[in-house]
Design a binder for these strands. Structure first.
Lengths: 196, 196
DNA sequence: GTCTATAAAGCGATAGAC
DNA sequence: GTCTATCGCTTTATAGAC
């Protein structure tokens, strides 16, 4: 019989979802065990450092995902406009059109910011910087690019707060639509919105 | 000797600050007792319903403050442009230029949204509606007013997330500056920024 | 109105059998 | 690798003295 779980990677998404929905303090080991289907023994086998190490691993995985799928393309893609549109589609998809919240934003607002301060800071700083670079390569002035990038990242986070508060995911969809116009000068394509 | 505490009103601000900084789950009665200088006995004397009643009272107080100082003026002020500028100044002041976080935003992102869903929803819905009404009275089309209002409220929340994540309150100040231009067509006045 | 003592439950974490 | 049992601590909440 193959082992039930090959490594941390198999259960990280489930753990991430618990932290995302309940925050660091609210994510009890009982909940995590329930969601992953593992007992505490197994959890501590994979994460000897306990809850702290689980959260750090989740943050690292999310960070790597954004680096690979959003920050990297924004910095490197030959056509910055294409990368920006792709970023908006990826954002819509990742946050399930507002049905999912940003775990790192949740951590930023609570006690977890003190625990994982540099990871939280780095994530947002690199998002803003990568987007600013794309905007600059697309022809914007450096200072305007930076301001637009900061505005867009803040708007995404605020859109998630609003969508969850109003229990209306369309508030997030509308936010993404406004950002698209601000950044690209055009509405989001129906194709991008449908596939997301 | 006068009683140490006349009523709930005296200690609500201290309790609010604990919820704001630690979230609902993180705000333990031990912390609240420490911050208010009261033992559990006194806390349960004022709030027989315990932590849940404390949070509800804090939400109600915050809601009343925003209703009186921001939503009301936005709806009623004879000059909507003046009310909008005043709202931005009040926002800057209330959130300590980004040094303070929005308790209702924190609740919205976490488990507390399920507990206090209607209060959270109502707060944000009325903020957007009141601002939209002011913009409409100022001459905007209804649909444009509503979109701008939603954009501004989301930007404020996102600016708070960003400022706290980056540990840089100026990220919030810059956000408010951009909102001012979007809503009023003019930068925030130096007077308003200084007095905030 | 404020306190201490205490109850009952849940928490993160550990130990050790299998 | 997975489990159960358990430890020690903190949690919310209550009881009752003053």
């Amino acid at each position: 019989m193959p082992r039930a779980v090959a490594g941390r990677g198999d259960i990280l998404p489930a753990i991430a979802e618990v932290f995302r929905e309940h925050g660091y303090e609210g994510a009890s080991l009982a909940l995590i065990g329930q969601r992953t289907g593992l007992g505490k023994g197994s959890l501590y086998h994979f994460f000897p450092g306990g809850k702290d190490e689980m959260a750090a691993a989740v943050l690292a995985e999310i960070d790597a995902w954004f680096e690979a799928h959003m920050f990297g393309p924004l910095r490197d893609h030959a056509e910055p406009d294409v990368a920006i549109v792709a970023m908006l589609d990826a954002t819509d998809s990742y946050f399930r059109s507002g049905g999912r919240v940003c775990l790192i934003g949740v951590f930023a607002l609570g006690d977890a910011r003190d625990r994982f301060g540099s990871a939280v800071q780095s994530y947002f700083a690199r998002w803003v910087e990568a987007l600013a670079e794309a905007l600059q390569r697309g022809g914007r002035e450096p200072s305007a690019a930076r301001a637009l990038a900061e505005e867009a990242v803040a708007a995404i986070q605020g859109g998630l707060v609003l969508a969850r508060a109003l229990q209306d995911t369309e508030a997030f969809t509308r936010t993404l639509g406004r950002i698209a116009i601000t950044l690209t000068g055009r509405p989001r394509s129906a194709a991008g919105m449908a596939s997301a």
